[in-house]
Amino acid sequence: MKATFQVPSITCNHCVDKIEKFVGEIEGVSFIDVSVEKKSVVVEFDAPATQDLIKEALLDAGQEVV
């Protein structure tokens, strides 16, 4: 499964690193693409990962998800 999250609070590479760390810890996540320019995060994943778990990880990383 693939999901795109709009994350307007992404401003720098530190944000990218933190997002990759938090989302990458979720079992089932196979790909993460964070774009500072587009302020988006694209995640490819399989169970047990879910969109809700990914959104929670983004929030835990200090990001706003819309």
Score class of each variant (00 low, 15 high):
44 E>R: 12
25 E>V: 11
20 E>V: 15
59 L>A: 08
54 I>L: 04
1 M>K: 11
32 I>S: 01
51 Q>Y: 15
21 K>L: 08
62 G>R: 05
25 E>F: 08
35 S>A: 04
12 C>V: 07
28 G>Y: 02
42 V>F: 13
60 D>V: 10
44 E>P: 04
23 V>D: 01
27 E>L: 10
43 V>W: 03
35 S>P: 00
29 V>W: 04
34 V>Y: 05
58 L>C: 02
17 D>R: 14
39 K>F: 07
48 P>E: 01
24 G>Q: 07
37 E>A: 12
50 T>N: 06
32 I>C: 04
37 E>D: 09
11 T>A: 08
50 T>K: 01
5 F>S: 00
60 D>W: 12
8 P>C: 10
1 M>D: 06
66 V>T: 10
23 V>C: 03
39 K>I: 05
63 Q>C: 15
36 V>D: 03
66 V>G: 07
62 G>A: 07
49 A>S: 02
30 S>I: 13
48 P>M: 02
44 E>D: 06
16 V>I: 09
54 I>K: 03
21 K>P: 01
47 A>L: 12
65 V>C: 15
61 A>N: 03
39 K>R: 11
55 K>A: 07
46 D>W: 11
55 K>C: 09
63 Q>P: 04
62 G>F: 13
60 D>Y: 12
30 S>D: 04
13 N>A: 13
14 H>P: 05
39 K>V: 04
50 T>H: 04
57 A>F: 04
21 K>Y: 09
21 K>N: 06
4 T>L: 11
50 T>V: 03
28 G>S: 02
58 L>A: 00
29 V>F: 03
56 E>P: 01
19 I>H: 00
61 A>I: 07
25 E>N: 12
31 F>P: 01
18 K>M: 10
46 D>V: 14
16 V>K: 13
18 K>P: 04
61 A>V: 04
8 P>H: 08
18 K>E: 07
50 T>E: 01
22 F>C: 04
10 I>L: 10
57 A>T: 04
54 I>N: 03
6 Q>P: 02
25 E>S: 13
28 G>V: 04
19 I>E: 01
50 T>S: 06
26 I>M: 05
21 K>I: 07
4 T>N: 06
12 C>E: 10
55 K>Y: 14
13 N>L: 12
52 D>T: 09
30 S>V: 13
16 V>M: 06
4 T>K: 08
46 D>C: 11
27 E>C: 06
66 V>M: 08
36 V>S: 03
50 T>D: 04
41 V>Y: 04
53 L>Q: 11
44 E>S: 10
27 E>H: 08
12 C>H: 10
23 V>Q: 00
12 C>M: 09
11 T>Y: 15
1 M>L: 08
6 Q>A: 09
12 C>Q: 09
26 I>K: 03
2 K>G: 04
4 T>A: 07
56 E>S: 13
37 E>Y: 09
23 V>W: 03
17 D>K: 13
59 L>Y: 09
3 A>M: 10
25 E>C: 07
15 C>L: 09
26 I>Q: 02
16 V>P: 05
27 E>K: 10
28 G>W: 03
33 D>A: 12
7 V>C: 07
40 S>G: 04
37 E>T: 10
33 D>Q: 12
65 V>R: 05
32 I>H: 00
14 H>W: 11
23 V>E: 00
14 H>R: 15
55 K>V: 14
42 V>N: 06
20 E>P: 00
33 D>E: 13
1 M>H: 12
58 L>V: 03
60 D>A: 15
23 V>M: 05
18 K>L: 12
36 V>Y: 06
48 P>S: 01
12 C>I: 07
60 D>S: 14
46 D>P: 01
47 A>P: 13
64 E>T: 15
49 A>R: 04
16 V>D: 03
8 P>F: 09
38 K>D: 09
8 P>A: 10
35 S>H: 06
66 V>C: 14
44 E>Y: 15
42 V>E: 07
7 V>K: 00
49 A>V: 03
30 S>Y: 12
57 A>S: 04
59 L>R: 12
37 E>I: 10
